[in-house]
Amino acid sequence: MSVTTVPIHPIKKGSLTKIWLAVFLVAAAALLLAYTGTRNVVVNGASNEQFLAANADEDGVETTASGLQYKVIKPGEGASPTATDTALVKYEGRLRDGTIFDANEQTPMPVGGVVPGFSEALQLMQKGGEYRIWIPSELAYGEASPGPELPANSLLIFDVTLLDFISAAQMQELQRQMQAEGLPGGPPPAP
Protein backbone atom coordinates (compact mmCIF):
# COMPACT_ATOMS: atom_id res chain seq x y z
CA MET A 1 0.00 0.00 0.00
CA SER A 2 1.36 3.28 -1.00
CA VAL A 3 0.61 6.68 0.48
CA THR A 4 0.79 9.66 -1.77
CA THR A 5 2.18 12.69 -0.08
CA VAL A 6 1.17 16.17 -1.08
CA PRO A 7 3.59 18.82 -0.10
CA ILE A 8 2.06 21.70 1.87
CA HIS A 9 3.77 24.93 1.15
CA PRO A 10 4.39 27.15 4.15
CA ILE A 11 2.30 30.33 4.50
CA LYS A 12 4.18 33.49 3.79
CA LYS A 13 5.08 35.56 6.79
CA GLY A 14 2.33 38.13 7.63
CA SER A 15 -0.42 36.44 5.57
CA LEU A 16 -2.37 35.33 8.63
CA THR A 17 -2.31 38.89 10.01
CA LYS A 18 -3.66 40.20 6.70
CA ILE A 19 -6.49 37.66 6.73
CA TRP A 20 -7.53 38.61 10.28
CA LEU A 21 -7.30 42.31 9.45
CA ALA A 22 -9.57 41.79 6.43
CA VAL A 23 -12.09 39.84 8.57
CA PHE A 24 -12.07 42.66 11.16
CA LEU A 25 -12.61 45.36 8.51
CA VAL A 26 -15.53 43.46 6.97
CA ALA A 27 -17.13 43.00 10.42
CA ALA A 28 -16.64 46.70 11.28
CA ALA A 29 -18.18 47.77 7.96
CA ALA A 30 -21.16 45.47 8.57
CA LEU A 31 -21.71 46.90 12.06
CA LEU A 32 -21.49 50.47 10.77
CA LEU A 33 -23.97 49.72 8.02
CA ALA A 34 -26.34 48.04 10.48
CA TYR A 35 -26.09 50.99 12.91
CA THR A 36 -26.70 53.54 10.15
CA GLY A 37 -29.71 51.65 8.88
CA THR A 38 -31.14 51.22 12.36
CA ARG A 39 -30.57 54.88 13.23
CA ASN A 40 -32.39 55.95 10.06
CA VAL A 41 -35.37 53.74 11.01
CA VAL A 42 -35.41 55.18 14.54
CA VAL A 43 -35.28 58.76 13.29
CA ASN A 44 -37.82 58.40 10.49
CA GLY A 45 -39.97 55.36 11.16
CA ALA A 46 -40.08 54.83 14.89
CA SER A 47 -42.79 56.02 17.24
CA ASN A 48 -42.26 59.23 19.18
CA GLU A 49 -41.46 57.19 22.30
CA GLN A 50 -38.82 55.13 20.46
CA PHE A 51 -37.34 58.29 18.95
CA LEU A 52 -37.11 59.98 22.37
CA ALA A 53 -35.60 56.84 23.95
CA ALA A 54 -32.87 56.78 21.29
CA ASN A 55 -32.41 60.56 21.49
CA ALA A 56 -31.92 60.39 25.28
CA ASP A 57 -28.69 58.43 24.67
CA GLU A 58 -27.17 61.17 22.50
CA ASP A 59 -24.31 63.25 23.95
CA GLY A 60 -25.47 66.26 25.99
CA VAL A 61 -29.19 65.47 25.85
CA GLU A 62 -30.94 65.87 29.22
CA THR A 63 -34.42 64.56 30.02
CA THR A 64 -36.61 66.25 32.65
CA ALA A 65 -39.12 64.47 34.90
CA SER A 66 -41.95 65.53 32.56
CA GLY A 67 -40.26 63.92 29.53
CA LEU A 68 -39.00 67.13 27.91
CA GLN A 69 -35.56 66.69 26.35
CA TYR A 70 -33.06 69.48 25.83
CA LYS A 71 -29.48 70.07 24.85
CA VAL A 72 -27.54 73.19 25.78
CA ILE A 73 -25.92 74.49 22.60
CA LYS A 74 -24.62 77.66 24.28
CA PRO A 75 -25.14 78.38 27.98
CA GLY A 76 -26.61 81.70 29.01
CA GLU A 77 -25.88 83.90 31.99
CA GLY A 78 -27.87 85.15 34.96
CA ALA A 79 -31.32 84.25 36.22
CA SER A 80 -33.95 82.20 34.43
CA PRO A 81 -37.42 83.51 33.57
CA THR A 82 -40.44 82.41 35.58
CA ALA A 83 -43.89 81.44 34.33
CA THR A 84 -45.18 85.00 34.87
CA ASP A 85 -42.38 86.66 32.86
CA THR A 86 -42.39 87.64 29.20
CA ALA A 87 -39.48 86.30 27.16
CA LEU A 88 -37.98 87.69 23.98
CA VAL A 89 -36.89 84.68 21.93
CA LYS A 90 -35.54 83.63 18.56
CA TYR A 91 -36.72 80.19 17.52
CA GLU A 92 -37.19 77.68 14.74
CA GLY A 93 -39.69 74.85 15.15
CA ARG A 94 -39.69 71.71 13.05
CA LEU A 95 -41.12 68.23 12.93
CA ARG A 96 -39.12 65.00 13.10
CA ASP A 97 -38.93 64.82 9.31
CA GLY A 98 -37.24 68.26 9.23
CA THR A 99 -40.29 70.24 8.07
CA ILE A 100 -40.10 73.76 9.50
CA PHE A 101 -43.55 74.78 10.74
CA ASP A 102 -42.67 78.06 12.47
CA ALA A 103 -39.72 80.42 12.89
CA ASN A 104 -39.16 83.90 14.23
CA GLU A 105 -36.04 86.04 14.64
CA GLN A 106 -37.34 88.00 17.61
CA THR A 107 -40.72 87.66 19.28
CA PRO A 108 -42.03 88.31 22.78
CA MET A 109 -44.02 85.54 24.39
CA PRO A 110 -45.49 85.02 27.84
CA VAL A 111 -43.50 82.17 29.39
CA GLY A 112 -46.63 80.66 30.97
CA GLY A 113 -48.76 81.26 27.87
CA VAL A 114 -47.16 78.74 25.52
CA VAL A 115 -47.38 74.94 25.35
CA PRO A 116 -46.19 73.31 28.61
CA GLY A 117 -42.98 71.86 27.12
CA PHE A 118 -41.88 75.19 25.65
CA SER A 119 -42.69 76.97 28.92
CA GLU A 120 -40.66 74.42 30.90
CA ALA A 121 -37.70 74.81 28.55
CA LEU A 122 -37.75 78.61 28.76
CA GLN A 123 -37.65 78.38 32.55
CA LEU A 124 -34.45 76.29 32.31
CA MET A 125 -32.67 78.85 30.13
CA GLN A 126 -30.71 82.00 30.96
CA LYS A 127 -30.34 85.19 28.92
CA GLY A 128 -28.19 84.54 25.84
CA GLY A 129 -28.59 80.76 26.07
CA GLU A 130 -29.21 78.60 23.01
CA TYR A 131 -30.98 75.27 23.46
CA ARG A 132 -32.35 72.53 21.24
CA ILE A 133 -35.52 71.11 22.76
CA TRP A 134 -37.59 68.05 21.94
CA ILE A 135 -41.17 68.40 23.15
CA PRO A 136 -43.21 65.18 23.39
CA SER A 137 -46.72 65.55 21.98
CA GLU A 138 -48.32 65.36 25.43
CA LEU A 139 -46.33 68.50 26.43
CA ALA A 140 -47.28 70.21 23.15
CA TYR A 141 -50.66 69.96 21.42
CA GLY A 142 -51.34 66.24 21.99
CA GLU A 143 -54.20 64.89 19.93
CA ALA A 144 -55.33 68.40 19.02
CA SER A 145 -53.93 69.86 15.83
CA PRO A 146 -53.60 73.66 15.84
CA GLY A 147 -53.40 73.68 12.05
CA PRO A 148 -52.60 71.63 8.96
CA GLU A 149 -48.84 72.23 9.36
CA LEU A 150 -48.87 70.31 12.68
CA PRO A 151 -50.40 66.84 12.60
CA ALA A 152 -51.97 65.48 15.80
CA ASN A 153 -49.55 63.82 18.25
CA SER A 154 -46.53 65.60 16.76
CA LEU A 155 -43.20 65.63 18.53
CA LEU A 156 -41.87 69.18 18.20
CA ILE A 157 -38.19 70.11 17.88
CA PHE A 158 -37.10 73.69 18.54
CA ASP A 159 -33.85 75.59 18.36
CA VAL A 160 -34.37 78.44 20.84
CA THR A 161 -32.28 81.45 21.85
CA LEU A 162 -33.43 83.40 24.91
CA LEU A 163 -32.60 86.98 23.95
CA ASP A 164 -34.03 88.65 27.06
CA PHE A 165 -36.95 88.55 29.48
CA ILE A 166 -38.86 90.95 31.73
CA SER A 167 -41.05 90.42 34.76
CA ALA A 168 -44.82 90.74 34.77
CA ALA A 169 -44.52 94.02 36.73
CA GLN A 170 -42.14 95.48 34.11
CA MET A 171 -44.51 94.38 31.34
CA GLN A 172 -47.48 96.03 33.04
CA GLU A 173 -45.47 99.24 33.43
CA LEU A 174 -44.57 99.18 29.72
CA GLN A 175 -48.23 98.68 28.83
CA ARG A 176 -49.24 101.61 31.08
CA GLN A 177 -46.64 103.82 29.41
CA MET A 178 -47.82 102.81 25.94
CA GLN A 179 -51.42 103.43 26.91
CA ALA A 180 -50.55 106.86 28.33
CA GLU A 181 -48.80 107.75 25.06
CA GLY A 182 -51.77 106.49 23.04
CA LEU A 183 -49.83 103.60 21.49
CA PRO A 184 -51.47 100.21 20.92
CA GLY A 185 -50.48 97.41 23.23
CA GLY A 186 -52.40 98.09 26.39
CA PRO A 187 -56.04 97.59 27.33
CA PRO A 188 -58.41 100.32 26.20
CA PRO A 189 -58.87 103.15 28.70
CA ALA A 190 -61.86 102.92 31.03
CA PRO A 191 -64.81 105.16 30.03
Rank of each mutant, 00 (worst) to 15 (best):
M1K: 11
S2L: 08
T4C: 07
P7F: 11
P7G: 09
P7N: 08
H9T: 15
K13T: 07
I19D: 09
A22I: 09
A29E: 05
A30Y: 12
A30H: 04
A34R: 13
Y35V: 11
T36M: 09
R39K: 13
V41D: 04
N44H: 13
N44V: 05
G45Y: 02
A46H: 06
A46D: 07
S47D: 05
S47T: 15
N48R: 06
E49Q: 12
E49S: 10
E49M: 03
Q50S: 14
Q50Y: 01
Q50R: 15
F51C: 02
E58F: 08
V61P: 00
E62K: 07
T64H: 01
A65C: 00
A65K: 15
G67C: 06
L68H: 02
V72L: 00
G76E: 04
T82E: 14
T82Y: 06
A83I: 13
T84E: 15
T84M: 09
L88H: 07
V89T: 12
V89W: 04
E92A: 09
R94G: 08
R96V: 01
R96L: 09
R96E: 02
D97M: 04
G98V: 05
I100Q: 10
D102H: 09
A103D: 12
N104M: 11
E105Q: 10
Q106M: 06
P110W: 05
G112L: 11
V114K: 09
V115D: 14
P116W: 03
F118L: 15
S119M: 08
L122Y: 00
Q123P: 08
Q126F: 03
Q126T: 15
K127I: 14
K127V: 14
K127L: 06
G128L: 03
G129L: 05
G129R: 03
R132Q: 14
I135C: 01
E138N: 11
A152V: 02
N153S: 04
S154V: 03
F158R: 02
F158N: 04
F158H: 04
D159Q: 12
L162Y: 02
D164K: 06
F165L: 05
S167H: 02
A168P: 01
A168L: 14
M171A: 11
M171F: 06
Q172D: 13
Q172N: 13
Q172A: 11
Q175N: 04
Q175V: 05
Q177S: 12
M178T: 07
A180M: 03
E181D: 15
E181W: 10
G182E: 09
L183G: 07
P184S: 14
P184L: 10
A190W: 07
A190N: 10
P191H: 10
